[in-house]
């Protein structure tokens, strides 16, 4: 990537941070939602931090990384700022990358709290800590592109995209080993869980926080990488297909 293209990507990301970080849907779906969702699950149950915190961290990364993507495109369509961006000398992939960069940074910042909790309550090894950082980073990128892909239908109402994204995100949370460790799931559900990218992130955090994991961490990272490439490709193709209908 040329330096000028990189500068343009960063400029888009800074714009997104200034405009979208404090938007209602971002705060609600990215920060408050995972917190209360998790709280409602753990209250009244006796579970060890080794079981709880990998799920919490994965859920925070998942929800915060998928919170901004669905907001940007409908909002920019409605505000007619998207046409202005498209008329600029910047390719579509760079606009998408800029949006993903902002979304990734949001997820990285949000994940600080569960990581601090993990460090406080679990004796995480140095290799576990490195794996955690890799997981947070790759998970943030992967789910940022996933959120962006979900915003590809050419509508100008954030609520429409939020409805679509909620329909996809909710089932994923329940089948991906967030609340129940995959090894404890019935065989049929475990098979479905393998089709969810969130499974590999939760599994990676279970491994890095010293819990019971299903796969080798390298395999989790590989699976997340494949999902990321898939989401990048699908997002670019989908947005390329629908962008004209937004104008």
């Amino acid at each position: 990537m040329e330096i000028k293209s990189l500068q343009k990507v960063i400029a888009i990301a800074i714009k997104d941070m200034r405009v979208y970080y404090l938007k209602g849907p971002t705060i609600i779906f990215g920060l408050l939602f995972p917190f209360f969702f998790f709280l409602s699950f753990i209250i009244g149950r006796e579970m060890s931090p080794t079981v709880l915190l990998p799920g919490l961290t994965a859920m925070v990364v998942f929800f915060s990384a998928t919170a901004i993507g669905p907001v940007i495109f409908p909002t920019e369509t409605r505000a007619h700022t998207l046409e202005r961006l498209v008329s600029m000398p910047i390719p579509l992939w760079a606009i998408l990358l800029g949006d993903v960069l902002a979304s990734t940074v949001f997820a990285l910042i949000s994940s600080i709290i569960p990581i601090i909790l993990a460090l406080l309550f679990i004796p995480v090894t140095s290799s576990g800590l490195i794996l955690t950082f890799i997981g947070v980073l790759i998970g943030s990128i992967c789910f940022s592109y996933m959120g962006q892909l979900m915003s590809s239908p050419p509508v100008d109402q954030t609520s429409t995209i939020m409805m679509i994204s909620t329909l996809i995100k909710f089932p994923l949370v329940f089948i991906s080993g967030i609340f129940v460790v995959i090894t404890a799931m019935p065989e049929a559900v475990r098979f479905i869980a393998l089709l969810s990218p969130l499974t590999y992130l939760a599994d990676l955090f279970h491994a890095s926080f010293g819990g019971v994991s299903l796969f080798d961490p390298v395999l989790d990272i590989l699976a997340l990488s494949i999902w990321t490439v898939g989401f990048v490709t699908l997002s670019l193709l989908a947005h390329r297909r629908t962008i004209e209908r937004r104008l």
């Binding site: 714009k15 200034r18 405009v19 505000a79 007619h80 700022t81 046409e83 202005r84 008329s87």
Partner: peptide, 11 residues
């Protein structure tokens, strides 16, 4: 200067 395009009002 697109017809309907706007500036970012939050900036």
């Amino acid at each position: 200067l697109p017809e309907t395009a706007n500036v970012y009002v939050d900036l």
